[in-house]
């Protein structure tokens, strides 16, 4: 007869059994810390919603590698272009994800990368234009398996 699985067995299997690395939950960034990080970028200048588009799957099966593309509506000419795109999150241990600098030679204001998400949360992308204005987009992402689990 099979011995009934205990709840502990079950949790261990769910968690993927013994790893050589102990993963502890670091204190997560807070929405407040994210606001501070954004303030550092904008120096208090107003941020308008619009122009920026975050493209990320709304439901993520593995938080270790989440494909994300940020694009900005801009002609990318010498007169009118994006100089910087910054990506922030509110619940990873640190609010900054990545900062990308570009200019009229980029042709398009678009960057794609892969990021880690510790848990379901909101992402914010902010673009700075050459006229000094800031624009933003926000999206919610649901993560079903968090980043950095290990089971081998």
């Amino acid at each position: 007869m099979p011995s009934p699985a205990t709840r502990r067995d079950v949790l261990i299997l769910g968690a993927g059994a013994a790893g050589s690395i102990l993963l502890t939950r670091p204190s997560a960034a807070t929405p407040e810390q994210m606001r501070e990080a954004i303030l550092e970028l904008t120096n208090g200048a107003p941020i308008r919603p619009g122009k920026v588009h975050i493209d990320v799957p709304p439901l993520v099966e593995n938080g270790n590698s989440v494909p994300i593309t940020v694009s900005v509506d801009s002609p990318m000419t010498a007169d009118a272009h994006v100089t910087l795109i910054a990506l922030f999150n509110e619940k990873n241990p640190q609010p900054n994800v990545g900062t990308f600098r570009m200019g009229p030679r980029s042709g398009k204001a678009r960057v794609a990368t892969r990021i880690r998400l510790a848990t379901s949360q909101q992402l914010t992308a902010i673009a700075r234009l050459n006229d000094g204005s800031f624009w933003s987009d926000k999206v919610d992402v649901i993560v079903t398996i968090a980043a950095c689990t290990e089971d081998s």
Binding site: M102, S106, T113
Partner: peptide
């Protein structure tokens, strides 16, 4: 850099996934 002139630059934080990937454009 394109023939010595920087055309794209990035700062990464720990939230960038292992084996970092970037896609961007230039003229």
């Amino acid at each position: 850099a394109y023939n010595g002139v920087v055309v794209f630059e990035a700062d990464f934080y720990p939230a960038i996934a292992a084996n970092p990937f970037l896609s961007f454009t230039t003229i």
